[in-house]
């Protein structure tokens, strides 16, 4: 396949996720938080969805939250690894989020928690989600944003430069909230909304943070990662820098996780749409009268 080389080593990611499956319960607070957040956003939407997909949500938290919504009749869970869905009691399948096996217009809702930032082709995945949705179907997703682990990124960069005379990528490039908004529009999601939230988590030290990341299956899976492990001394220097630069005041350290939420609808004739520029039939001056004129009492820019 042509195109840019893949960013993420998905095979390695899969290994990490399988390993994480064993330890997950201790470190699943981020997923719980995001699943709750997606669910509360859905509560605000007064609409029924007959077929809903929990796309690669890792744990089934999203599916369990979806089940609490009375407007949803049927929930399907899709993961790219068999062990993740094996014991789930509901409808499930194994598929690649970058190659969805759903026919056109088969789903009413696609909910995706913290996995689409790890696909190599996010626009492509969104296009596929769009195709699988019925007209007026909803995409509701959350990905990790660019602020995620910014502290760890910084101290590893500093420590590696200082101790080993060079640096390499340790923290994946994540999605920016503005990029997500543009992407939703580019894929032609209607009434798109994207926003972000930064959650600060405290840890005893950098090693406790890394232990948690490992339990989440979130350690480095970049293709361009350094294949040789960092020296012990580099790690200790990074931990020292972390503690001095990002303290909490109570002897702990803080780590940021940014969640970028995305919401968009597939086009349908019932949705409101902006008219084409220049297609207005009534002049604003007729409506507003003198108030509309520049220098009048109303807002100056109203007729321009």
């Amino acid at each position: 396949m042509n195109g840019p080389p893949p960013v993420f080593d998905r095979d390695l990611l899969n290994l990490r996720r399988l390993r994480a499956l064993k330890t997950m319960p201790s470190a699943d607070f981020l997923l719980t938080h995001v699943a709750d957040e997606l669910s509360s956003r859905l509560t605000l939407i007064r609409r029924a969805f007959s077929v809903a997909l929990d796309l690669a949500g890792h744990t089934g938290f999203v599916a369990s939250r979806l089940a609490q919504h009375p407007g949803i009749d049927w929930i399907i869970r899709a993961e790219n690894l068999f062990p993740l869905v094996k014991d789930y009691p509901g409808t499930k399948l194994v598929c690649d989020p970058e190659a969805l096996p759903f026919g056109d217009g088969t789903l009413d809702l696609v909910a995706s928690a913290l996995s689409l930032h790890l696909v190599n082709d996010l626009p492509g995945s969104l296009v596929q989600i769009m195709r699988a949705l019925r007209p007026d179907g909803l995409f509701l997703g959350a990905v990790l944003g660019g602020e995620t682990l910014s502290e760890l990124r910084e101290v590893l960069l500093l420590a590696e430069t200082e101790m080993e005379g060079g640096s390499s990528l340790h923290v994946a490039p994540f999605v920016d909230v503005r990029d997500m908004g543009l992407l939703l529009q580019r894929v032609d999601f209607r009434l798109p909304v994207s926003d972000s939230e930064v959650v600060s988590v405290t840890y005893d030290d950098m090693f406790a943070l890394i232990k948690d990341l490992r339990a989440m299956g979130m350690t480095n899976m970049l293709h361009a990662r350094r294949r040789r492990p960092l020296r012990r001394s580099t790690f200790f220097r990074a931990a020292e820098l972390y503690a001095s630069r990002f303290p909490t005041g109570t002897g702990r350290i803080r780590a940021s996780f940014e969640f970028v939420y995305a919401l968009g609808w597939k086009a349908h004739s019932s949705q409101q749409e902006a008219l084409r520029p220049g297609s207005a039939r009534v002049s604003l001056v007729d409506v507003l009268g003198d108030k509309g004129r520049a220098g009048g009492e109303g807002p100056a820019g109203a007729v321009s």
């Binding site: 049927w74 399907i76 190659a99 096996p101 759903f102 026919g103 789903l107």
Partner: peptide, 15 residues
């Protein structure tokens, strides 16, 4: 398998 699910599925390679 869930028959209802099979009705939704297409080949991910060729659709």
């Amino acid at each position: 398998p869930d028959r209802k699910l099979l009705e939704l599925l297409v080949c991910p390679v060729t659709r």
